Simulated assay, not measured.
Amino acid sequence: MTEDTSAHSGTAVAEDPAAGPMVRVQNLHRSYGTGASAVHALRGVSFDIPRGELVALKGRSGSGKTTLLNLVGGLDSPDEGRVTVDGTDLSGLGENGLLELRRDRIGFIFQSFGLIPILTAAENVGVPMRLRRTDPGEREERVELLLALVGLAGHAAQRPGELSGGQQQRVAVARALANRPALLIADEPTGQLDAETGLAVMELLRAVVRGEGVTALVATHDAQLLGLADRVLDLTDGHVSEPGRSSLAGD
């Protein structure tokens, strides 16, 4: 019998990824703690996300949204079940393979922005490409394009402390797109923003999904933002349901 070395090689190997959904989640279980005090965050969660969709994940605080996003993004491992991203089964990857996947194929956007204070907006956007050792000329061109895409072409030299919250989150969106990911994962990306600015950021994410051809999974509790999604998944008591497709799903 030939040993399957894929789990040890650290290389992300995809089998005809274009033939399936961007994300496939199958029977995910994740608990914290043991015995009677164990918290069962996910209880057999399954769903698919087709390519090119913006899918919103809603649920009350503590419902397990961040746990689910971490599993889809390869930041955590399930107790049971399987996650496939862009044709790659995450359970078949070693740590090097997961690092490669997160660097090259998944972009993360967080509520706290996560920008490096001493770097300019342009330098923050360029960080993922530096880690990937992208050619400097190509990197600078991509940074310029992305800052223009998020409406910050005139703010390249400003540091995070000189930008508003909405502008900082736009920089974070640009940074998440730096390495041309197939999947964007956003955890309450508008949680620290006022309603008007939050709506503008969500509209930007929708435009990015359409314009850049990426897929997005966005956790949010804001009903106004949920209306911009192609689909809404509701996470309750460790289970996912789909209340229905938004009116924009087929436009």
Rank of each mutant, 00 (worst) to 15 (best):
P128V: 03
G165D: 09
R159S: 05
A121Y: 15
I109F: 02
L177I: 02
L152V: 09
G126W: 09
R102C: 13
A182E: 08
I185V: 15
T134F: 10
E123N: 06
A172H: 04
A148R: 13
R130P: 10
G151L: 08
G151I: 07
L152Q: 03
E141Y: 15
D104A: 12
R139Q: 13
L149I: 13
L183C: 02
Q111F: 08
V125N: 01
P181K: 06
V173Y: 02
M129C: 12
F113D: 00
A122E: 12
H155E: 15
L177K: 04
P136Y: 07
Q111I: 06
A121E: 06
E144T: 15
A172T: 00
L152H: 05
G166P: 10
L177H: 07
L146P: 01
V150P: 08
G126P: 09
F108W: 04
Q167P: 14
P136N: 11
I106K: 12
E138K: 15
L147I: 01
Q168G: 01
M129L: 12
E123G: 05
E123W: 11
S164F: 06
A148I: 06
L149N: 03
D135E: 08
Q167T: 13
E141A: 14
P128A: 02
L177A: 00
R139K: 15
N124K: 01
R133F: 13
I109P: 01
P128E: 06
A172R: 05
Q169D: 09
I116W: 11
A157Y: 12
I116E: 02
L119G: 07
R175V: 01
L145V: 04
L149Y: 04
A156P: 09
L119A: 06
L146F: 02
P160M: 11
V127M: 14
N179C: 04
D135Q: 07
R159G: 07
S112F: 08
R133W: 10
I106E: 15
L145K: 14
V127P: 06
G107V: 01
L147H: 02
R142G: 08
Q158V: 11
L147E: 03
G114E: 11
N179L: 00
L183R: 01
D135C: 06
A156S: 13
R130A: 13
R105I: 05
Q169P: 02
R170M: 06
G107Q: 03
L163S: 11
L152Y: 12
F113G: 00
E144W: 12
I109G: 00
S164H: 05
R175M: 05
G154V: 09
E144P: 09
R180K: 09
A186I: 07
V127R: 01
R180Q: 11
I118W: 15
E144L: 12
E144R: 15
L163G: 09
L184C: 07
V171T: 01
R105S: 09
E141C: 14
L115T: 00
L115Y: 05
A157D: 11
I109E: 00
E140K: 14
A172V: 00
P181G: 10
L131W: 15
A174Y: 07
P160G: 01
A172K: 07
